[in-house]
Design a protein around this nucleic acid. Structure first.
Length: 223
DNA sequence: AAGACCTCCAACCGCGGAACG
DNA sequence: ACGTTCCGCGGTTGGAGGTCT
């Protein structure tokens, strides 16, 4: 069916947020197209869902990743690769988008560090580049580093089905995990001292309009 | 002080698969 | 069984704010 109405795009306004929260509370967080329609928001259902899932959902933990979470992300990513939603399900309060963003920015940094090292010593521990292929550029190296398909995918070159069993004790032989762990440990040391309860960097919006919405509504009556 | 560059993250897009009629 | 609609996922982009020179 052709969507003739003009749909709004771009950043959400406070009014839109409040409106969306109201209707999600009213009808639940399903049927996004329906919600988009009845709410009167000139947004697509998709856009509404995204806004809810990534920002408005009160179950979201906000603020900096804790060292524990970082560790989990690394571990799960080495197992599952870029299966962000799957990883997110194992980390309460974090969204796939958040984890994806985190991974991209942090792993890029690590890749760059790695790149520096490898340009200094040709026999670096960067195991991903095949030894004989000189055609692999630095850029490709970096890409491979953080866009890994994960252990499960690496183990068998061919297509492998998504087995959901979380078997512990899989060997961590992907890339130079040692390097990553070292970094994480350092990070932990630094942060342990300043690891305040999260919720620090909350949008001002939460302080007022939405905050009061949470209080006013009876969530338990939902779903 | 100001412009360039970098980082972070919200939001969009395209696609595949599930659900529904 | 098939076409349509909806949902969710992964990849990408763009802008705001921060840092560097």
């Amino acid at each position: 069916m052709v969507q003739e109405e003009i749909t709004r795009r771009g950043p959400w306004t406070e009014e839109e947020d409040v409106q969306l929260v109201f209707y999600v509370k009213l009808f639940g967080d399903r049927r996004w197209d329906f919600l988009a329609k009845v709410s009167g928001l000139k947004r697509t259902g998709k856009s509404c869902r995204l806004r809810w899932v990534n920002y408005l959902n009160p179950d979201l933990k906000r603020g900096k990743m804790t060292p524990q979470e970082e560790r989990l992300v690394l571990e799960l990513h080495s197992k599952w690769g870029n299966r962000w939603s799957r990883i997110a399900r194992k980390i309460p309060g974090r969204t796939d988008n958040e984890i994806k963003n985190y991974w991209r920015t942090h792993m890029r940094k690590k890749a760059q560090e790695q790149r520096k090292k490898s340009s200094i010593s040709p026999s670096s521990s960067f195991s991903n580049s095949s030894p004989s292929s000189s055609s692999i550029t630095h850029e490709e190296n970096e890409r491979n580093f953080y866009d890994t398909g994960g252990l499960e995918l690496l183990q068998s070159e061919g297509e492998k089905k998504d087995s959901d069993q979380e078997q512990a004790g899989e060997s961590m032989k992907v890339y130079s995990m040692d390097e990553i762990w070292k970094d994480i440990e350092l990070l932990e040391e630094n942060e342990e001292t300043m690891n305040k309860p999260i919720m620090g960097s909350i949008s001002p919006l939460w302080d007022y309009s939405l905050d009061s919405l949470w209080k006013d509504f009876d969530w338990s009556s939902f779903r």
